[in-house]
């Protein structure tokens, strides 16, 4: 079977979990087997994972699983994988999944491909699967030859598909382990979709001239239900919070729509956003390198164009 670890940060299943189970179900169909979801610690409404294709939903709880420690999590996931003869183990390519995937590969003597964004194909007992490499500048196909395979799934790579029914949650034992990480505090931005999960991102750069000018960017994001982001110089000047910085040193994202306002498009910035499905660039300089990576471009004064675009989106929303 295909085992999917469905993350439930602070007790809530997130988009990453629904994507991973949707993907796991497709992989299971490909292999002619079933998809089983595993949640660890508190996971409200875990049975809902049945809707996304899990034929069984397992939950392990215990004091050691109340906060994230890659060691305790990996031990339990690996035990469940072994106990159920999992041939493929899938995690999300998130802060949690990235800490786990390598551990699971060692523990299960498995080949690992991390950050996959497409379905695998079978080749005898092997799996072939693609991922983006060289910061989006190339695609590599990997061949996994081990009996057990581990994959981590990039965010926004598959759309959650909910067509099944909820299933009853089965409780399984947490493996004994020696977790040594003591989580003291979790600070999250409330109210906004985190950047890695956002489907629409409105991002702005030095062309904004002053942090006091960000109102037009926030208004546009509000209209679109988008998350705001910024370029490195803007974050480094403390015009915007560091967690908004997208690009190579900041966060790499792949939304459906990335709107870049007053960002020239240095290669380090592109490395973090070039996997976006559609890129719109608004810049007064027609020579800005970002236009070469863009799908749609507007050459003009952002202080005029952005409010106009906001009005056009509002009119569109009102009409649809």
């Amino acid at each position: 079977m295909v085992l999917v670890f469905a993350e439930s940060p602070r007790g809530n299943l997130k988009k990453a979990a629904f994507e991973a189970v949707t993907y796991g179900k497709k992989v299971a169909d490909l292999l002619g087997t079933t998809c089983v979801a595993l949640t660890l610690g508190k996971a409200d409404n875990a049975g809902e994972l049945g809707r996304y294709g899990a034929s069984r939903v397992l939950n392990a709880t215990g004091a050691a699983l109340d906060h994230f420690d890659s060691q305790t999590y990996a031990v339990t996931i690996a035990e469940v994988a072994k106990g159920n003869n999992a041939s493929v183990v899938i995690v999300s390519h998130t802060s949690t999944g990235k800490s786990l995937a390598g551990r699971l590969a060692v523990r299960l003597d498995a080949g690992l491909v991390s950050g996959v964004n497409m379905l695998p194909v079978t080749d005898g007992g092997k799996l072939k699967v693609k991922k983006s490499v060289f910061s989006g500048k190339a695609i590599a196909e990997f061949e996994i030859s081990s009996a057990v395979k581990v994959l981590s799934l990039l965010g926004n790579a598959v759309k959650p598909e909910s067509s099944g029914n909820p299933v009853a949650v089965e409780t399984v034992a947490a493996a004994a382990s020696n977790g040594r990480i003591r989580v003291k505090e979790v600070r999250t931005q409330e109210g906004r979709v985190p950047l890695p999960e956002a489907e629409i991102v409105v991002s702005a750069g030095r062309g904004m001239k002053d942090p006091g000018n960000w109102g037009i960017v926030e208004d546009l994001a509000e209209t679109l239900g988008a998350t705001t982001a910024c370029s490195r110089p803007v974050a480094d000047s403390d015009w915007r919070p560091h967690h908004e910085h997208v690009g190579q040193t900041g966060i790499a994202i792949r939304p459906n729509l990335y709107i870049a306002i007053g960002i020239s498009g240095a290669i380090q910035h592109l490395a973090g956003v070039n996997n976006s499905k559609v890129i719109v660039v608004i810049n007064k300089d027609p020579e800005a390198p970002f236009f070469k990576a863009a799908d749609y471009g507007v050459v003009g004064d952002l202080f005029e164009v952005v409010p106009r675009l906001n009005e056009a989106f509002k009119a569109f929303k009102a009409a649809n």
């Binding site: 190339a138 695609i139 196909e141 395979k149 660039v281 749609y296 471009g297 106009r308 675009l309």
Partner: peptide
């Protein structure tokens, strides 16, 4: 047990489609 066997370059972008700055309805 996991090896990169085949590399390809991503398909080239079709090229940017420019929209006039006073026609955001078109965008």
């Amino acid at each position: 047990q996991a090896k990169a066997v085949q590399f390809t370059l991503p398909p080239a972008k079709a090229g940017v489609k420019l929209v006039e700055p006073d026609n955001m309805t078109e965008l």
